[in-house]
């Protein structure tokens, strides 16, 4: 077998995992700091928010939908939570709950707008919601950040469980939970079926609207959780915190092998997608590549990753 063929074969088998390994090897050669434990702990902390919200985006994309309100819901949940605690003196646990409820509530609206108003595509309902929630976050804060959160609220972002930082614990718990949810439960199976063929799912007795509404709620929950972790890490809630996260989340899911047309994608793949983005950012930072150039590189990576996936599908 020729070298090219071996490479193609590997690509076919492992796809994005192989991409991640190649990235890691290249960076460890180029920078002595890359493979240190400290650096990896940093990578995981940096990707923690993206990792959590990508799960929400994943289940939406599995149903052949899309959620553009990621960043805005993240920001709004964090801002409402911080405002409740810092300005109104609400009990920190209650503040956390309020933050989560904001995410859930707006996720529910996304789902209701799409299924009950029969808007043609979730692109539209979530685009609207992105602007509504984004604007609300700015209105509530008048554009200023809210600092000074209590340690309880910050725990998910900065705490430690033994030697493991809490964001990493969140990632592990959420990824395990979502993996089990999507592969072992009835609802998970229905989500895949709706994405694969909505009409067939409906004719098989699946209450498509109800499942979709739940999907957007769960997505909203992950966005709020992402917001809470971020607020903890930076000890502040700011209305523009979510900027750019929607595209990163979609990119991670797609790099991770999910199909835009629904029905295909996995939690494991999404983790790889998230790590590819995280490792790439980290490595480029270590190599002192300017953030402006990083953006272009990231764009190229998305295109290459999806193209490789296209090749894989065509080959099989």
């Amino acid at each position: 077998m020729k070298g090219v063929d071996i490479f193609k074969n590997l690509l076919k088998r492992f796809g994005s995992v192989l991409g991640l390994i190649i990235l890691c090897i290249s960076f460890s050669i180029l920078s002595p700091y890359f493979l240190t434990a400290r650096n990896w702990s940093m990578i995981f902390q940096q990707v923690s928010v993206l990792a959590i919200i990508a799960l929400g985006e994943l289940i939406v994309i599995l149903t052949a939908g899309i959620d553009l309100s990621v960043g805005s819901l993240l920001a709004l949940s964090m801002v409402v939570m911080a405002k409740a605690e810092v300005e109104y003196g609400v009990n920190p646990f209650l503040a956390l709950l309020i933050g989560i409820l904001v995410g859930l509530g707006f996720g529910l609206s996304n789902g209701l707008l799409y299924t009950k108003l029969h808007l043609p595509h979730p692109f539209i309902s979530t685009l609207g919601m992105m602007m509504i929630a984004g604007g609300l976050a700015l209105v509530l804060t008048k554009g200023y950040p809210i600092p000074g959160l209590s340690p309880t609220v910050r725990f998910l972002g900065t705490g430690q469980l033994g030697p493991i930082p809490m964001p990493l614990v969140c990632i592990i718990v959420c990824y395990l939970a979502f993996h089990i949810f999507l592969t072992q439960t009835v609802l998970g199976r229905k989500i895949y079926a709706i994405g694969g063929n909505r009409e067939a799912a409906k004719l098989s007795g699946i209450n498509v609207s109800r499942v979709l509404i739940l999907v957007y709620c769960i997505a909203g929950f992950t966005f709020a959780l992402g917001g809470i972790i971020l607020a903890g890490r930076v000890n502040s809630a700011f209305p523009l915190a979510g900027k750019g996260y929607e595209l990163d989340a979609i990119a991670a899911v797609i790099i991770g092998g999910a199909s835009f047309f629904g029905g295909k994608g996995s939690v494991g793949g999404t983790l790889i997608g998230v790590l590819i983005i995280g490792v790439l950012r980290n490595g480029l930072n270590l190599l002192n590549v300017s953030p402006f150039a990083q953006m272009s590189i990231m764009g190229a990576v998305i295109i290459i990753a999806v193209y490789v996936d296209v090749l894989r599908r065509r080959a099989s």
Binding site: A193, G196, N197, E199, A201, G262, K264
Partner: peptide, 9 residues
């Protein structure tokens, strides 16, 4: 194809 099978699974 359109209403019966779920082709992704």
């Amino acid at each position: 194809e359109m209403e019966g099978i779920v082709p992704t699974t």
